[in-house]
C-alpha cells in the first residue's frame, strides 16, 4: 500500500495530507501504545472505530482538519495523541447538540 503519512501508526488512518487528526481503523483498547508524530503515546481511553485522535499539537481556537476540510474548532489545547471529540471541539456552524459522557 502507499502510505498517506510517513509517521502514521498502521492502526490509524490519516485521511489527507495536512490533516491534524487521524481516525482509528479498528477499535483500539485503552493502554495501547501508538506511535504518533514519531513519538510513543499511550491511549488514556479506548478509541472506537472511526473515532479521532490528534496527530499534532492543536492550539485552542485552531481548526480541526479532516480530509483537508475544517470540521470545527478546538475549544482547548490538544496534544498529539489526545482523543478529539465534542469535549474539545465545537462546530463552527451550529452548537454541538450532543455531549459525550465520560469525557472530561
Amino acid at each position: 500500500m502507499a502510505s498517506s503519512e510517513p509517521q502514521a501508526d498502521p492502526r490509524l488512518l490519516v485521511l489527507a495530507p495536512g490533516d491534524n487528526i487521524a481516525v482509528a481503523r479498528q477499535e483500539i483498547a485503552a493502554g495501547t501504545q501508538l506511535i504518533i508524530a514519531g513519538h510513543p503515546v499511550v491511549l488514556q481511553r479506548a478509541l472506537g472505530f472511526g473515532h479521532k485522535i490528534a496527530v499534532r499539537a492543536i492550539a485552542q481556537g485552531e481548526k480541526i482538519i479532516k480530509y483537508g476540510v475544517p470540521i470545527g474548532s478546538a475549544t482547548a489545547d490538544i496534544a498529539p495523541g489526545d482523543y478529539v471529540h465534542s469535549h474539545n471541539v465545537a462546530s463552527d456552524y451550529m452548537p454541538n447538540t450532543v455531549v459525550v459522557e465520560g469525557v472530561a
Binding site: 472511526g50 479532516k66 480530509y67 470540521i71 470545527g72 456552524y93 454541538n96 450532543v98
Partner: peptide
C-alpha cells in the same frame, strides 16, 4: 440533522457528518 448515534460513531460536529457525504 445530527443525532446521538452520530456522536457514538465518532462524529463530533454537523460539518464532520456532512463531510462524509460531501467527499
Amino acid at each position: 440533522s445530527f443525532a446521538p448515534g452520530n456522536a457514538d460513531g465518532g462524529l463530533t460536529t454537523i460539518e464532520e457528518k456532512s463531510l462524509g457525504a460531501y467527499a
